[in-house]
């Protein structure tokens, strides 16, 4: 089955895509760039790097822009998926939805209306097992946004390795965050994955941080051989 992966550039969409590649044919990535930082569906600080990731993975990309107005942005997502059907003949969509009924429901409805399959391979997954597997399979994931206590500024740009995962697990116990960041506590960017033939190198970035909220914006990045 030919599938398109909804991709924000973060760990969940890429890991879902990676799982899809083990079982079906991933034909393209689908990306919606929101110009509204408060978008319910699509805001991620570094979604502009998805084209570079697509190149690293050797996958075509279908990308559309949205103003990010609640519910209206769904029409833009539907447009992006329809484009992927036209250009790449996809029969279904893969998402990295973990727990968000809001996001999951809306994507399911769009797929139903377009008569497409909808797969959410991380849906209600065991967070500990998922994060362990993410590291074990060789994903290099960087934190690019923090949005809750107790995340300090030094989390911006930090790679999620064994030490970072141990810290996150302590935060789960003490501060009741979600381990995966599904509650919006942090955002990530995938720099390398088993399905990448090249890895992403950040050449220039800027950081903003205040009161447990911060964003790392990548200004320049490139690909290097693995």
């Amino acid at each position: 089955m030919r599938l398109g992966v909804l991709c924000s550039g973060g760990k969940d969409s890429w890991f879902a895509g990676y799982l899809a590649m083990q079982k079906e044919e991933v034909a393209c990535l689908i990306s919606v760039r929101s110009i509204n930082e408060e978008s319910y569906m699509f805001h991620t600080p570094n979604v502009h790097l998805v084209p570079l990731q697509a190149e690293a993975a050797g996958l075509p990309l279908v990308s559309v822009e949205t103003e990010g107005i609640k519910e209206d942005e769904l029409a833009d997502l539907s447009r992006a998926i329809r484009l992927a059907v036209e250009r790449h003949g996809i029969e279904g969509v893969v998402t990295g939805a973990l727990l968000s009924v809001y996001q999951g429901t809306r994507i399911q409805r769009i797929c139903r209306d377009l008569e497409l399959w909808c797969f959410n391979p991380l849906w209600y997954t065991d967070p500990d097992a998922y994060m362990d597997l993410l590291l074990k399979t060789g994903f290099r994931v960087m934190v690019t946004g923090v949005f809750s206590a107790p995340f300090t500024a030094d989390w911006l740009g930090r790679q999620i390795d064994a030490n970072a995962l141990r810290d996150l697990k302590q935060y789960v116990a003490k501060h009741r965050i979600t381990l995966t960041g599904e509650g919006g506590e942090y955002e990530t960017l995938v720099l390398d994955a088993p399905c990448f033939t090249k890895r992403i190198v950040i050449e220039e970035s800027t950081e903003e941080y205040c009161n447990y909220r911060g964003i790392l914006r990548v200004r320049h990045a490139s690909l290097e051989a693995k």
Binding site: P121, W123, T125
Partner: peptide, 15 residues
């Protein structure tokens, strides 16, 4: 068997 739907509909129940 072992489809992407397995991850979505079987694994959460098994969990």
């Amino acid at each position: 068997a072992r489809s992407l739907s397995h991850d979505e509909f079987v694994c959460p129940v098994a969990h």
